[in-house]
Design a protein around this nucleic acid. Structure first.
Lengths: 277, 277
DNA sequence: GCCGTTACATGATCTGGCTCAAATAACTGC
DNA sequence: GCAGTTATTTGAGCCAGATCATGTAACGGC
């Protein structure tokens, strides 16, 4: 059997915003180039709430008036970096939407090893989407940066989905897409080397959170070797070694908790390479 | 941080059907105990179609009259074991439902290694659920046994979802559930040993396709060491070694392409064990 | 019932990546 | 600016599991 193999998803970076880095034009920086936005932890303004709800892909189809109504159904919460939003095993009945900042989604193992499933950005949803079975969160959500999240009871959300079929379809699309992406991760964990997996994750993050800087594509969030390791099913040490190697090869420029991609084509080669050459 | 860890999903086997094994009461069988149902490859009867559509979780809420209408929208196809239903990379615009038999869902890697994402049973859907992006199948669907599948154009299906919001919600629930399960696989691949992964997959398959026999729970489908390896991200040899070991420990009884679970509690211990004891 | 084919088993060897360990370097708070 | 803390780097040894190799047993076809 010789099926078509290939990357199916778009991998353009055209959407990336170019931000004028006022600091260190000579690029020999040692300080993090990541711009951590300091959010008032306990409240996002009403304006922010509305603009976020509009930005949530779910609701982008809805008329403004409807969104204003929805707005009342949501509550807002702020969390500090590292703070848990909910724990795996807790009773699950709430759906969340990231308003600002980033949220980590992770699963814990008996061995103590945590696996980082995803890092969510503003507009992404998480938590309990459906009123299934036993109603316990299978994963833990944790603030990665300072975040503001909007929340709604799962039941209320489902009523809403019944009311607006197009919204339900959009939510389905997003969930189906996430399933595809997660299946690709399964494939990578089963068939690719750690080096390939790390290259792939860097490219993915660049696509998702990348920002053009004078040196290359800055992944606009704090990203430690350990985060990287938890995302690729390896150890901190190995992640560190691989990043060092990439840096030697001129593919990335990195420091403490930040990475700039300087050789996207090279990383793509590595991520896609068949071992058997 | 010390979050709650634990199995969230129900793991009962109460639903398993008990089938009177007419063959080899003395259980020293060498021939496969798996009962391969021989289906007319190119056609499932109209009755079968209706009863399948009713069984599909999507439509179980719908009144019979509606289902009869739906029936016209579906076409049916038969496939022989090993035959591809669609290939990754092909243009995707069709949604399928398994009517009878089992379907493998897999992804290919450049290295030639295939990863088995799931084995679907009657009532399960696969193919293109949503009209997303570039419309290429990211995975390959292949008949595992002789199968009969029903198919509908993705567009028609979406129209249908718009018409029946409760159906859309059910589809969403199923997709969300699959996402959860796939994330659990990611966790296992990242954090568990091969032995644990194989034990877990056996239990999962037992829950899904198990049938009580006089010896234990028979996984009612052909299941080779290679299938097992592709599901757990290991090699055929290692899978074989682990099964041999399980057999020595009295946890399973197995032959060529079949496995009976004789020690469910033992397997559960292994699947759940923290390495650090 | 025999033969060819296809799974499966198992030994021997090799290695990518994990573990353990210890030294630096970057940030933070004061 | 200094001290303490936390992230990163790098080395050395080790091991689970991959690879390579070979033998054997089950099954299907005729």
């Amino acid at each position: 059997m010789s099926p078509n193999i290939g990357t199916v998803w778009s991998d353009s970076i055209e959407h990336l915003t170019e931000k004028q880095t006022s600091v260190t034009a000579m690029s020999q920086h040692r300080k993090t180039p990541v711009q951590v936005e300091t959010v008032e932890p306990a409240a996002c303004s009403v304006d922010l709430r509305l603009s976020i709800l509009q930005k949530v892909p779910f609701f982008s189809d809805l008329p403004d008036a409807e969104i204003r109504t929805l707005n009342d159904q949501f509550r807002e919460y702020g969390f500090q970096p590292g703070e848990p939003i909910y724990f795996s095993g807790e009773k699950a009945a709430t759906l969340y939407v990231v308003a600002s900042g980033q949220v980590k989604l992770l699963r814990h193992s008996m061995s103590g090893q945590d696996v980082l499933l995803d890092i969510l950005k503003p507009g992404d949803y998480f938590g309990s989407l459906t009123t299934l079975a036993d109603e316990l969160y299978p994963d833990t959500a944790q603030a990665h940066t300072a975040v503001c999240v909007l929340s709604i009871q799962t039941e209320a959300f489902r009523t809403l989905l019944q009311q607006y079929p197009p919204v339900a379809l959009t939510v389905l699309d997003i969930t189906a897409r996430r399933l595809q992406e997660t299946q690709e991760i399964v494939r990578r964990l089963s068939a690719d080397s750690v080096e390939q997996r790390i290259a792939a994750v860097l490219l993915k993050l660049a696509q998702k959170l990348g920002e053009i800087s004078d040196e290359g594509i800055l992944i606009q969030m704090p990203l430690s070797r350990d985060d990287l390791a938890q995302m690729t099913g390896t150890t901190t040490e190995t992640a560190s070694r691989i990043i060092s190697q990439f840096q030697k090869e001129g593919l990335v420029h990195s420091g403490r908790k930040w990475i700039v991609i300087t050789g996207r084509p090279g990383l793509k080669m590595i991520a896609a390479a068949a071992d058997t050459v």
